[in-house]
Amino acid sequence: MIRARVSILPKRTVFDPQGEAVRHALGHFGLSGVERVRVGKEIELEIPGEGDPAEIRSRLETIARDFLANPVVEEYELHIEGLP
């Protein structure tokens, strides 16, 4: 079994109102002085580990770049476990 995780964050050049709301609330929690918070998402994909590893990696990269993340406003990292 191959497990791929795609971690997605809003780009630093983009204003993230959700991150800003969390940063503001951190002050109420007693942690002031946080300069910036970005809120993103993590997507996990489980796929059978059959097939050409290079092709699987390439397809996962395409899926991450062209669908799961929007490179106009988001940055992402792809982590793959279980690929030979």
């Binding site: 983009v14 109102p17 106009v72």
Partner: peptide, 10 residues
């Protein structure tokens, strides 16, 4: 081109 983000004021 471009993208639509959450409204700046949330």
């Amino acid at each position: 081109p471009g993208a639509l983000l959450p409204n700046a004021d949330g």
